[in-house]
Structure formats: C-alpha cells, structure tokens
Design a protein around this nucleic acid. Structure first.
Lengths: 191, 191
DNA sequence: ATAGTAATACGCAACGCACCGTATTGGTGA
DNA sequence: TCACCAATACGGTGCGTTGCGTATTACTAT
C-alpha cells in the first residue's frame, strides 16, 4: 500500500476562494477582461497558487462552469410532461436573459470561453451546464410519445442551443414568438 | 459641395497591405493571437496608420470578413433548384472543413471574433459572409414550393448555422449522415 | 516519545517579455 | 499648406516564470 501522501495537503479554502473570485470577476467583467493577476488579488491568493493547479485561464473557467457557479439556475430545462411547452418556456427564459445587457454579456463571455476550451463548448452543448441536459429532456419526450422514435435528438438539441447562440452573437434578442416558431419548426409530432 | 480635400489622400496600398496582412495572420495564428503590432510589421506599416482608421482589432477583422478575405469560397450555398440537396451539400462541406484542424481553427477564430463584434456575428448568421445568404436560399425554396409558405425561414437559418457552430465549439466534427439527419429534421415539406 | 528530514503548499516579490494605446518627429506628395 | 505616412519612444498592463522564506504534514531514526 502505497505511499501515503507527504507534505502539506492542498488548501481547500484557497481553491474555493479562487473559484469564487473567478466566478465573481467573470460575471462582472466578462471572460475577455479576466486576468490571472486580477483573480489572485480578488481571491487573496498568490499567482503561483493558481498556476500550480490550473494550466490556463480557460481551465479555471471550465471548473467554475462545472461547479455551476457561472449560470443562473433558471436556465435549466423544466419537465412538466409537455415537451413543447417545456422547450418554449426554456427558450423564452433564455431569450429574456439575452435581452438584459448583463445577460447577453454573460452568454457572450461563455461563448468566448468555449472558443478557448472544448470542454466548455461541450457543456454549452449539453446545454448550459446545469444538472439537467437538453438532450435528456428530448429523449424523455420520445419515450412519452411526443416525438417520433427516430427523431435525431442530438441534432435537435444542437440546433436549439445553436439558434440561441447565433441570436446572442448577432445581437438580435429574440422574442417569445420566435421561441414558439423555432420549437414548432423543429418538433415534428409523431405521425 | 464644397469641400476640397486638403492634404494627401488615404493610401490605398497601405489599406490593402493592412487588410491582407490581417487575413494572412488570422489564418495562420487565429484571432486570439492576432496583434496590432504583428499586423503592422507584417504589412510594413506603422501602428499609427492602423489606429488612425480602425478603432479596434475586431473592426479590422470585420472589414476583412466583409471583403471575403477570410473564408474559403467553397462555403457559399449552392442553388441547383433542389433545396434539400443544396442544404445537405452545404452542411457536408462545412462539416468537412471542421474536420481539418486548420478548418476548425478558422471557424473557432471567427466565433471568437464574433464574440467581440456584433457585425461579425451578423455576418456569421447571414451565413459566413459570402455573397449568397442562407436565408435567401431558404426563401427561394419557399417560392419553389419546397417549403411551406409559413416556414420560419429566419429561425431555420439560425438553427442550421447554430448547429454547425455548436459542433465546432464542442469539438464533435459531424459526419455526412448528421447533415442529412439535421436537414431532414428541420425541413418539413409542404403538406 | 521526540527530534530530525523530506516533501509539498503557500505568500511575497521580482523578472523579462509581449502587446497595448498614445505621443512626437520628420519626410512626402496633393 | 496640410493630411497622410514611417519611425520611434513612452507608460501601462498582464503574462508566465523564478527564487525566497515559511507552514504543514508524513516518514524515520533515535
């Protein structure tokens, strides 16, 4: 039985302080203006302690996203049993977020971060990193007979998230009616 | 109309050299590693000449995109009369591009640039800045009776481009079969 | 038990580098 | 004459790395 670890254990408080500082500054200033030195100062920690554990800024942000520290909780997909209604409600929430300047900034920053780190892109795709996954919700819809058995669930999920991303990038907010149209265009009911 | 212009006119050769250098370095190193000083050196021009005409790096890139200097020409949407076949062919071209490492890098860089500049995002949405627009092609499909009259053309376009963007960001290439599935999921034929 | 040693983590401070955006200067051509 | 240009310099900011001194912990030899 192999060697017990020697030396001081990693400081949990430092780890937490760094992640929280990252989340705070990410929300305040966005991904672009995030700096390691700024995070270190905000967390009350030395730069080296960050560099020791995270190779790059993007990995730090990825860890934050993984811990759900970057996104408002209202962005997870509901499951009331009615797939169409759930998707529309979820998209409307997203569109509403994009209309608030800070909300759009947050989304843009997430996309920018995804640009630097595939993991973040994956999380965005599996839709916004929350507990519940968009694709899983679609699969539930298939089981409930609200979607054809052979519906390309993964593709539909990518199309939905992608449409939102394009709206964010091009700066067209997207209204409630757009959410309805998009969902109705994508969701072909079974036979 | 008065204004005689006084002094020397803007140097067209400097303008071109700057745009071409930007395009070259963008393709080589990506948006992240693009620097004004690097562009100036590559173009054989002083920094001031760049700052005089473009307020920010992202505007410079936007101008390049506008002039079609950043994208391979094969990414424009064909119009053979068969909407479904055209869309599938176009998506397959895109997916193939994403499978080449350089191609994916190019797309990621474009997305990163869009993150910093709404105009670039708009160009991406109108799809990839070429002469032909994806939405226009869809509209042609409506006229040809290959799509329902009330098909939400704009939303479909965003969904298609968005799906591709999500694939690029999350690092899943996307194969030919995916293109077919996606198009068939989105395109509901008229009645 | 108690010291000593080794391994590890930490904060602090400083380094050279790249790039930023802004002057200033002097040359050149309409 | 005066707008354009190249060249050069400047103060800032952030990068990623290094060296230093100090805790904290486990192993080991007394």
């Amino acid at each position: 039985m192999p060697n017990q670890r020697r030396g001081a254990p990693r400081s949990e408080s430092a780890r937490l302080a760094i992640l929280q500082a990252t989340a705070r500054l990410f929300a305040q200033r966005g991904y672009e203006h995030l700096s390691i030195e700024g995070i270190a100062a905000e967390a009350g920690v030395s730069k080296q302690t960050i560099y020791r554990w995270w190779p790059a800024k993007s990995d730090l942000v990825a860890d934050c996203l993984l811990d759900g520290m970057l996104l408002p909780s209202r962005l997870t997909i509901p499951d009331t049993g009615d797939l169409r209604a759930d998707l529309i409600a979820w998209l409307e929430q997203l569109f509403q977020l994009l209309q608030e300047p800070d909300g759009r900034g947050l989304m843009i920053s997430l996309i920018a971060a995804a640009t630097a780190n595939e993991q973040i892109g994956g999380r965005l795709r599996d839709s916004l990193g929350g507990e519940s996954s968009l694709v899983a919700r679609l699969a539930t819809g298939v089981e409930a007979g609200q979607l054809r058995d052979d519906a390309p669930v993964a593709e539909l999920g990518e199309a939905l998230v992608g449409a939102m991303i394009v709206k964010a990038l091009s700066g067209r907010p997207g209204e409630s009616a757009d959410a309805v149209r998009l969902v109705d265009a994508l969701l072909v009911p079974p036979d």
